[in-house]
Design a protein around this nucleic acid. Structure first.
Lengths: 361, 361
DNA sequence: TATCGATGATTAAACGATTAATCAGGCGAT
DNA sequence: ATCGCCTGATTAATCGTTTAATCATCGATA
């Protein structure tokens, strides 16, 4: 909306100079004497001058707006991401336009197109389950996972998995059930890979995928964790706090106390994780840092780009593409009960009696 | 970013007409013969013409962008709201710029100012705990609760409370603990008001506020619900699913089975509500409808407004300001256990032995 | 003294769309 | 035959900013 605020010409008129001089003084580009420049800045500030983005956009081809594309906005991580991106972008002078794709791939394409039509200078994309993003014709920062080709910046999900696993291992767990949602997700696979890499030596590990299970038994179906406990599993390492919550309540409901009889861990430190009972042990990513790096790389690419060509659409790269995760130990994890499947307390070779880490069929 | 796409003049040149005619044909405003208009539309479509928002904005003072302001983006409801607003806005041809206030009031003001500086045509505000929003100088749609002055559109939180209470009442609950976060929230007060209005007759009701309790005992402290059960409470009506989740896990942890020994209900149907065990009974608001109404009212106000003046900043009003909530009955609510505090099964006057609905000190 | 260069400012064009004002015909009515 | 009106199109101005090109002035150099 056209604020009634003063325009460039208004300042120029006030000081009896030309509009071009004002523009030069404010941007520091042309040749303006130091004293006049100072005077211009002063009156601009005094009058509360705010440049018209529309005018500038028309002239420069830069809108100072970036688009934020998320696989599905309903993802509980969305608030964290959006907040961090918005903060980073606005400190860099950019606005953030959101685009929702409701999980749908074609909708996502449409959403991206709408952003392009709005002349965004660049976009931050969190791709859905490792789908490659097509060349969109403007600089793109991709936040996925370091092992994804084209990734710009991401948390070190593998490392996060390792931390979780080491925590569980140190507590004494030797039979761990990993709970994931969908094997197509690069993020989940990295987390799981990290967990397995630590537990491979001397622990029995199995993976349960929720989505395939739900396709058979319906949404929100029980995961059958009580049976798993009966089979000797003492820890449930979930790939997201959402699944951890699901596991926790299912176990509690079955009368299995957490963490005394079974440990539960999650990922992402979602909003409820500190306030449920027991509070969830989880691995958190430093979204603020990730967003800062992504936006910084994006802004750099935008700056280098010639506004005329619409050719370059390859994901931009950041110097520091891998941000470590942070283990948050709370009450949902503890040592396993002493009874089951602990062949002997005879220190060393007791471990070898447990099956080596194995992979799911 | 300046797409390399064809401009208005390009189409004009292709057909050998003037740019003005093309503009008129495409907008349907000036006087253009039907056949020429058709031909223009055809080539525009063929060439994939997309108007430059910057050019249009500069001329018309309309950016076709609205701002979305939320009290704190970390709110678990945010995804729902953002998704619904984005859908409604984009179908109306508007982009959505997000502004986060991190819960802080001064930050919120800054965020709003940034939106104004970006020339948004209007904004949708979900105010923080009933803070009145100041005159911002552009049309504003407020989503809060019908009883808030200046509210544009909202779910019927009071009615939602009534539905929850009637459900609980029909199940036979006579001692209900309401769990809220902060007494300053209009939304929460309406929900609680609705609950109490139904339960006032013949049930004992008490309210527990989390935030004051946490100020004393620290974040994530136990709510002491086991004691409440011992006192005879059979149902916990929470003002949000987040609190319901907290209550549920605390009860489960204390060995109190839900719903056999105590019922738990929430609000908002948040992401985890269907997948925890037992799945949460809750009241859902129709965000899609609310967003549609809010955006419609906003767009109408934007259309009527003279782009030149920046005076009107009062919240716009919608025709249909109150959208009913929908009760979602799942497994977390059931009839209370038969034993405790049921003075007698002697039908009628048994009720009067229970204290009338009372208010918290 | 005439000229060159640097300095500090101004002019004017451009970005892409909208829209008020204008203009050229054609047709009916006086 | 002339005037006025309606239709369908064009002209030209405008929104606010940026920036290349131009210009004036002054001091220093040849």
């Amino acid at each position: 909306m056209a604020r009634s605020g003063p325009k460039l010409t208004r300042i120029a008129r006030t000081l009896g100079v030309s509009a071009a001089t004002v523009s030069n003084a404010l941007s520091g580009k042309g040749r303006v004497s130091a004293e006049l420049a100072e005077k211009i800045r002063a009156t601009a500030a005094e009058l509360g001058y705010v440049p018209s983005l529309a005018g500038r956009a028309l002239r420069t081809g830069r809108t100072a707006v970036i688009g934020l594309v998320l696989p599905d906005i309903a993802n509980p991580l969305f608030p964290q991401i959006a907040q961090a991106i918005e903060l980073a972008a606005s400190s860099a002078g950019y606005g953030v336009l959101i685009a929702d794709s409701r999980g749908d791939v074609t909708t996502q394409t449409k959403a991206i197109e709408r952003l392009i039509d709005r002349d965004v200078d660049g976009m931050v994309i969190v791709p859905r389950r490792g789908t490659r993003i097509a060349d969109v014709g403007c600089p793109v920062a991709v936040i996925d996972t370091p092992s994804t080709p084209g990734n710009t910046v991401a948390a070190d999900h593998w490392g996060g998995g390792r931390q979780i696993a080491e925590h569980l291992k140190a507590l004494g767990h030797r039979r761990v059930l990993i709970i994931g949602n969908n094997p197509a997700s690069n993020v989940q696979n990295d987390r799981i890979g990290g967990i397995r890499s630590v537990l491979a030596d001397g622990a029995f590990v199995e993976t349960l995928w929720i989505e395939p299970l739900e396709r058979e038994q319906g949404k929100g179906c029980p995961l059958g964790l009580a049976e798993k406990v009966a089979e000797g599993f003492t820890a449930f390492a979930c790939v997201s706090d959402l699944h951890a919550l699901r596991a926790l309540t299912e176990l509690q409901r079955a009368g299995i106390n957490v963490p005394e009889k079974a440990s539960v861990t999650g990922f992402d430190d979602l909003i409820w994780s500190p306030v449920v009972t027991p509070a969830l042990t989880t691995a958190r990513m430093d979204m603020t840092r990730i967003a800062a790096i992504a936006v910084e790389a994006l802004v750099k690419a935008i700056g280098e780009r010639d506004p005329a060509d619409a050719a370059i659409g390859a994901p931009v790269t950041a110097d520091d593409a891998e941000v470590p995760m942070q283990l948050v130990v709370r009450q949902s994890s503890a040592a396993p009960p002493r009874i089951q499947f602990q062949p002997a307390q005879t220190t060393a070779n007791a471990r070898t009696s447990a099956p080596e880490g194995e992979h799911q069929p």
